[in-house]
Simulated scan of single mutants.
Amino acid sequence: MLCLAHAPAAPGLLVGYAVLGGTGARLVYAACTSTTGTWFPERAAARIGFLTGAFAYGSAPLVLALLVAPVDLVALDVFAVVLCAAVLGCGLLLADPPQHW
């Protein structure tokens, strides 16, 4: 989000938003799917399918907010800080199950 707000040209957007943002999203996606698979080994496909759907639906409010509301730099900066805090907070809650789960 910070690159989206402050990149002066398209190459900065490409590197910052697409590459770094995509890498971060993939790391979050991998952590969530692997943790879900270890907690629910008996029906892993159903649980991971539900999780990946929720992961995709999570982007819908952002897209709608960007389409409806006028976007300014301060709003994107605030959103970047809130998003980072939310991802870090949720990441602290991820834990693998105990052995022999």
Results as ranks from 00 to 15, higher is better:
M1K: 02
M1G: 09
C3G: 10
C3M: 07
C3P: 11
C3I: 01
C3H: 12
L4V: 09
H6C: 11
H6N: 10
H6A: 12
A7E: 11
P8S: 10
A9W: 08
A10W: 13
A10I: 06
A10D: 10
P11N: 04
G12I: 03
L14H: 12
L14C: 08
V15M: 09
G16L: 04
Y17Q: 03
Y17S: 03
Y17L: 11
V19P: 00
V19C: 05
V19A: 02
G21C: 06
G21Q: 02
G22A: 01
T23V: 11
T23A: 13
G24V: 05
G24D: 06
G24K: 11
G24E: 04
G24S: 07
A25S: 03
R26K: 06
R26W: 15
R26G: 07
Y29K: 09
A30T: 15
A31G: 12
C32F: 12
T33D: 02
S34Q: 14
T38N: 06
T38W: 14
W39Y: 02
F40C: 00
P41D: 00
A44R: 15
A44T: 14
A45F: 09
A45G: 08
R47W: 14
R47T: 10
I48M: 00
G49N: 07
F50W: 05
L51M: 14
T52Y: 10
T52C: 02
A54L: 15
F55R: 00
A56K: 01
A56S: 06
A56M: 14
Y57F: 14
Y57C: 13
Y57R: 04
G58H: 06
A60G: 03
P61I: 08
L62R: 04
L64W: 09
L64N: 01
A65W: 12
L66F: 13
L66S: 03
L67Y: 07
L67Q: 03
L67I: 03
V68E: 02
V68L: 11
V68R: 04
A69M: 15
V71D: 04
D72L: 08
D72A: 08
D72C: 13
L73G: 14
L73Q: 14
L73F: 15
L73D: 15
V74H: 12
V74S: 08
A75F: 15
A75C: 11
V78C: 09
A80M: 06
A80T: 05
A80L: 02
V82Q: 01
V82R: 01
L83I: 10
C84Q: 02
C84S: 13
A85K: 06
A86V: 10
A86S: 04
V87F: 08
L88I: 08
L88T: 09
L88H: 02
G89L: 12
C90R: 10
G91L: 09
G91H: 08
L92E: 09
L92K: 11
L93I: 03
L94Y: 05
L94F: 07
L94H: 07
A95V: 06
Q99M: 12
H100R: 13
H100V: 13
H100S: 14
W101L: 02
W101E: 01
